Simulated scan of single mutants.
Amino acid sequence: PGWNVTTERAQPPGARAPSGRAHSLTRRELEVLEFVAEGATNARIARALTISEGTVKGHMKHILRKLGAANRAEAVSHWLRLNSP
């Protein structure tokens, strides 16, 4: 994924400055969330990022908590809403 890195956080190209809890997502969490938005499984994300499935699950746990989402679909929905023009 092509991310514009400003400090320790990253945003997709052309995205607004994140608001609310989304600003606390790390670069890696944003990468994972982009894969999730594309419908990728934990196994596919793990292979693509060269990390374990357990690590992907940990990132998802943090993403869900930070966005206040109950599941993957809700997390993607929150993220897309916060980053739409």
Rank of each mutant, 00 (worst) to 15 (best):
H62N: 10
L30H: 12
F35C: 09
A75H: 05
T26M: 04
I45K: 03
R65W: 07
A73S: 13
T50Q: 11
L25N: 06
E74G: 09
T41E: 05
A70L: 08
G20M: 01
R9H: 14
G2P: 15
P85M: 09
H78F: 15
G2Y: 13
A46M: 01
P13T: 11
S77G: 12
E38S: 11
G58H: 08
S52Q: 02
N71V: 02
G14D: 10
L82V: 12
I51Q: 05
Q11R: 15
A37L: 10
K66C: 00
H62C: 06
T50G: 08
L25I: 04
A69Q: 03
P18M: 14
L49V: 06
E31P: 02
L33Y: 02
G54I: 01
A46V: 01
A48F: 07
V36Y: 01
V56F: 00
E53Y: 00
A10Y: 08
W3S: 15
N4E: 13
R21D: 04
A43Q: 11
G2I: 14
G14M: 07
K57R: 15
V56R: 00
R28S: 12
K57A: 10
G39N: 06
A15Q: 07
A75G: 08
V5K: 14
A46S: 00
A70D: 12
L49K: 14
V36G: 04
T41K: 15
G20F: 02
A69W: 02
L25P: 02
L64G: 03
A17P: 08
G54S: 05
E34V: 11
L30K: 13
T55C: 01
P1D: 11
A48L: 04
P13W: 09
H23Y: 11
G14H: 09
E8M: 14
P13Y: 10
G39S: 10
N4H: 11
T50W: 04
T55K: 02
G58R: 07
A15S: 14
L82E: 14
R27I: 05
N42K: 03
R27Q: 06
A69Y: 00
E8T: 10
N42D: 15
R27E: 10
K57S: 15
P1S: 13
P85K: 10
A40C: 14
N71S: 05
R16L: 04
T26S: 12
G20C: 02
R28L: 05
E38I: 00
S19E: 13
M60A: 06
A69G: 06
R21A: 13
N4D: 12
V56W: 01
R27N: 07
L33E: 02
P13M: 12
